[in-house]
């Protein structure tokens, strides 16, 4: 079965996020003075072929630990959904 994994990688709490800080300082200039706690991360989308969802998730988590995120400074979350049969990915 094919699964689409959406992986969200963000800097851990406590790790300085200068990009988030810049955006947080810029938004009030547009009138959004009620914004706080801006963090910038990245999204990685991939398709993985696995016998079942649990197997696919285990593999994606392993990929995150080994390459997609740096555990020293980043945390991640994985969102998995099956690719509907017959649809293109």
């Amino acid at each position: 079965m094919a699964f689409v994994a959406h992986i969200d990688v963000s800097l851990k709490a406590g790790i300085l996020d200068p990009q988030g800080g810049e955006i947080e300082r810029a938004l009030p200039a547009l009138g959004y003075s009620n914004v706080s706690d801006v963090r910038v991360g990245k999204t990685i989308r991939l398709v993985v072929d696995a016998p079942d969802a649990a197997g696919a998730e285990a593999q994606v988590v392993e990929m995150c630990d080994r390459l997609l995120a740096n555990p020293v400074i980043e945390s991640y979350s994985v969102d998995l959904e099956p690719v509907a049969t017959g649809s293109s990915v």
């Binding site: 800097l11 790790i15 300085l16 200068p18 990009q19 800080g21 810049e22 740096n70 020293v72 400074i73």
Partner: peptide, 17 residues
């Protein structure tokens, strides 16, 4: 070297970008 695990820690973006 940090990414390869030969040295500990990581190098993040400079303060003030």
């Amino acid at each position: 070297l940090t990414e390869a695990g030969l040295l500990p820690g990581a190098l993040g973006k400079n303060e003030h970008l």
